[in-house]
Structure formats: structure tokens, C-alpha cells
Write a protein that binds this DNA or RNA. Sequence first.
DNA 1: ACGTCACCGGAAAGCGCTTTCCAGCGCCGG
DNA 2: CCGGCGCTGGAAAGCGCTTTCCGGTGACGT
Lengths: 352, 352
Amino acid sequence: MGNQSRGPTLSDVARAAQVSLATASRALNGGQRVVGPELRGRIEEAARRLGYVPNAHAQALAGGTTSTVGLVLHDITDPYFAAIARGAIAAASDQGSLVMVGSTFRSTARELDFVRTFRAQRVDAIVLAGSGFDDDGYRAAMTEELDGQRRAGGGYAFVSEHHIPGHVVLPDNHGGAAALGRALADLGHRRLAVAGGPSHLTTVQHRIDGFVRGAEAGGVPASCIDRIDHPFSEDGGRAAARELLDGGCRATALFCVSDVMAMGALDELTAAGVAVPKDLSLVGFNDVPTMRRLTPPVSTVRLDLETMGRTAMELALDRSASGFRTVHVPAELVLRSSTAPVGVDVPSRENA
Amino acid sequence: MGNQSRGPTLSDVARAAQVSLATASRALNGGQRVVGPELRGRIEEAARRLGYVPNAHAQALAGGTTSTVGLVLHDITDPYFAAIARGAIAAASDQGSLVMVGSTFRSTARELDFVRTFRAQRVDAIVLAGSGFDDDGYRAAMTEELDGQRRAGGGYAFVSEHHIPGHVVLPDNHGGAAALGRALADLGHRRLAVAGGPSHLTTVQHRIDGFVRGAEAGGVPASCIDRIDHPFSEDGGRAAARELLDGGCRATALFCVSDVMAMGALDELTAAGVAVPKDLSLVGFNDVPTMRRLTPPVSTVRLDLETMGRTAMELALDRSASGFRTVHVPAELVLRSSTAPVGVDVPSRENA
DNA sequence: ACGTCACCGGAAAGCGCTTTCCAGCGCCGG
DNA sequence: CCGGCGCTGGAAAGCGCTTTCCGGTGACGT
């Protein structure tokens, strides 16, 4: 587990270079003060010779600075989070900070755990990506942890709404989904289905709400929108499609609250012989890279995920600002060929 | 940057609970010894009331144990690395360790930097994912760093060959690529092209060598295999395809050394009106999830990336073993419709 | 009833570093 | 020629913990 035979320490270097600990520290890990060129040379040479590597923990303890940040996300293989992570890591890197990544796999317990661990690491900042959970117990506990983080002088920020005070990078989930709903309505669709993820995720709620609102604006009453709930994953999308089909699908368009779900749904639909968009239009959300590569390319809403991650990290790292900031990021409707006008020629339901 | 007004310390808790520092430590961060139930209760209550969070740095310093590991990879948004990261993170998590992730964006300097930083953090283990670089200076420097890591009692492991002593998780790049080359040859292709990434990546070399060998075994002389080098990315793939086309393509099949490149190439090919596989067969490597979703689905070689990441982390974390282990992982040929016999007029579309 | 031990709590010594604070010293002006 | 200033180097005090070593107490055996 732990390191056993510790390596050379600063004292070792100081001794080897015949200088004091203080001088060695100043020379190597550069404080404010200057060290004479001769001593500095001796010290650097000794450090090199001994293979000295400063102990970041000791530095953190003594200096009170860590240069590490924490990033909490659901699953790093999900391209949505990968993109956010990339931005966040780049931003941290720019400020010379290391990123510790925690994968929660959508468990609130694990999420709290990571935040606690990050706090123990005295990270300078914590970024929580992925949707918040609509659960009072969770929210109270998380609020307390984050309060502690702030009181300890650290920062934090959310990507997506968490209904917890703090900096937030807020994609226009509602607006984007509304545009989607409206677009579908305008194409003549009158019976819609939405495959939602777990409804305790606030992002899911916003997207569904927005979608319904948009569809209504286009003349589709909310009562004509069926809702199917399945996990927020590819398999969830598959399951949703299956349920839709098995239930004797009356909808002419399916909205999956995330692209990853849409991918799963498309798989299942195609396998069942349902033609997209002829028999059923399909839309997703996020505009993950593969969406445009699918057959047919799937309509969705584009979010600049990488910038969102970067912004969140910058917000979390910025200890100057007083008060919490909310940065809104636009969502752009991307119509591709998975959506089509609802046909005059009767959409055949040829599910096996 | 650093935390300013530090939070409550163990001393604060001890004082509040009217016990000694030692007892508080034992009660909260559980050493070997037991604390009486009454005191333990008082202490825990005080800790909760004060919002005490142990200082991991102090613990690391005092106890010599960190429970953090480092993961170095090229780019987290590349699904290849994302999958490896997932496995590595999961493995670390299982052992109660936190993962710090460094993105090198393929710069050897940054890679060395991260390793140094991880060493400073006294991580228990370092996993280096992604190909090694065929560069003596790099190799010498890295060897030295990793030696230091080991002397300091830490572990490390590679995913893919780095030509540096250490544990290695070694995918069968050569064998997999050979199977690919052979398959193409067997389909009648006599003029092949390979889009390689930067040739100083050892993985690239192995895949190309394997491919050439396989093709030769199938009757295609090495002289009939053109080589195009471009970055190891989607754009690189695009560029490779463009170069191939511009050069008056004589090849009937194109091997991209990574799926990501194949994706870019397919884009470009399609845009240029080249039908795959009718005009040109296309193959990739890794079997990243989207490969099977492309049109046409692209043939490739499957690697169990997640397990590879997990294994590497386990190897790095396992301080019991003496000597270095090499774990070979099989590569499985996955033929899909992007490959077809040459010459024959073949149905290029296959739906349903 | 006394000696012995097991057991639990506390004092204190670091872990490796940063950072005051202080001492020595060459330099200037007076 | 002397006092003070500005330097640079060193001593030492922590940063917040873990852990060894000790001492005191109660239970137990005889």
C-alpha cells in the first residue's frame, strides 16, 4: 500500500550540498527569496545526483497549497463526460493543477464519498459534472460538504443544475429540448414519445419539461406525449425502444433525453425493422460526436461540452469572485435526417 | 490558490471531546487499537459537529500511505483511452484509491512531467497508457523516473509496449494486425495502403509490421503496400484518406492503425464519393464502440480495453510480486461489411 | 489480598517541507 | 573610521497527523 523505503529528502540534499534546509528549499522549490548562484548550483546538482523529488504532501502541509483539483462525474467512457473532463483537465492544467477523477456510476453515495475524499485531499477546487439528483437527503448532505469546502478556502462548481448554491455552468436544457419538441410538432408529428432517464436527475426533468413545452407550442397537447423511463444509458435507450414497440407504438417520433440513449434506441429500432425516420423520427440530446455518423444521422441538440467543462473548472478555481455565478450556455438545434415530416403515406407498423 | 482559513483539525476535535490527540486519531481514522465506546462516541460526535475532515496530506506525511494512484494517457476523449481509464479507475476504486489523471496530448515532455508530479504526490502506483515513444532520450529519462518510483516503494505498469522495464499489459497488436492483413489478402486485395500514425509510437510500428506480415502471408508483397503517415487522430485519418485519393489511389483496401483514424478516413472517403467497400475496403483497429454503428460497419480488431486498464492498475498496485510481469491480451479479428472481396461486383449496401 | 497482565488513554516524537525571524557581513554615507 | 542598511544564509517553529512508548486502571489468578 504505502511507500516503504522513502526516497531522498530535502534534508539529504541540503546535507549533500552543505547548506541549510532553508536554503535548499528556497533554491529548489523557489520561494520569494534569492539564493546565491554558487549555493544554488551546488544544491541543484546535489538534488539531481540524489534523484530528489519534493514530497507534495509535505509541501501541502507546510505551505498550505496543493495544486490539485477534483472532478466528479458519472462515467468517463460516456462521451458526454469525457468531453467535459477534457475541458476541465485542460483548464486545470493551464493553472498547473492536477486533476483527480472520481466515477460515481450514478450513485449519490459514491458522489458524496468522492467529495469527502477530495476535501480530505484539500483540493483547491471541485467540479461536479453530470446532473444533480432530486433527493433532499442527498442535497442536504452535499450542501454541507460543499459548504465545508468553501469554508476551508476551496472552490467548487457544477455542470448542470444541482439546486445547491454554487457556481453553475448551465446548458439550456429546457430551451434546447423545447426547440426539439417544436421542430417535431412543426413536422406534423402529433403523437410523441419521450424516453427519459431516471426522473430524479434534474437534467432529465428540464429536458422533458422543455420538450413538452415546445411540442405544446407547436400544437401537440401534453396528453399526446407518452413517457417511458429507463436508465440513462445505451441499454436504457434500447429498453425504451423495446417498450415503445411492445406497447404497440402510436407515436411517430421518439425523443431520447440523451444521445447515448438515442444510440441504443436506434439499434433496437433498426433491429426490429422500424425505419428511421420513415416509420419513426428519432432525436437525442448533446450532439456527441458519433451522432452525425449514425445511419441515419440523428437530430439532436448541440452543447459545447468541452467549453462547459473548462468554464466550470475556471469558475471553481477562481477564488476572487464573491457570490456565485451562473454561466448559461446555449443549446443549438441540429436537425439531421433522423427527423422527417410525418408521412402522408401511412406509417406502417411492421414490428414483429 | 491554496486554502486559506483552514478547517477544524484533529486537535480541535480532541479538545472538543476532551480527549487526547492520540485517542481522537485512533477513534476517527482507526488505527490498530480500540477506543472505548464512550470516548469514541464523544469523539465522533464532536467531529461531526465541527465538520471535521481529516487532512489527507498530513496523514500521508505521518503515516506514509497515500491511497492515490496516477494514470497517464494521451487524451481522455479518445474512446480508446476512455475505456482504459474506466477499467483503471474501477480497479483503483476497488482498492480504495483515488486516481489522478494526466492528459499528455502525445507530448513526451508532458508525459515526463506528469510522472514527476505523480512521484511528488507519492502515488502508490502509476499506469502509463497509450503507446510508448521510440526515442532514446525519452526512454532514458522515463526509465530513471520510474526507477525512482520503484525505489520509493511505488509501483507502475504500462499498457502497450514502452521498451522500458516494468509490468506490461500487452495487446497482440502484431497478431491482430496480421489477421487483418491476411484477411484482406484472402479477399483478393493485392494493393494495400496503410495509414499509420506517428512512427515513433511503438504501437503503430507493431500494427504496421503485423499487417505487412499478414498480407505477405496471404501473398501480397510488402512492396505493394503503400504507407501514409498522419497524426493518430480523426483528422489524421481524414488527411490520410485525402492523400490516398489525391495520389491517384491504386490500393483496394486501406488499413488505419486506429479506429479513430478509420472514422476520419471514412468521412473523407464518403465525402469524396468513394464507396466502401465497393471501391475501397476499410479496416481499423481497437473496436471502439462506434465502429459497428458506422455505415458501413467497419472491420477492425477487438481489444478488451477496459480489462486492459484494470489489469494494468492491478499490476501497478501489486507490490507483492517480484520481477516484472507481462500480461498478453488477445486481439480478435472482427470482420464487418467495410471489407469485401476485391473485383467482384459486390452489394455495397446491406441493410436490416 | 497481592502481583500480574491486558487494556486503554495520553505525551511526545517525528513525517518533509515552508517560512518567519535572526545573525553575519559587506557596503554606503557621514 | 563607525553606524546602519540591505543582503544572503541558517535556526527553528510549526503544518496536521500517526504511532511508539508509558503510565494508570481494573480484572483476574492464586
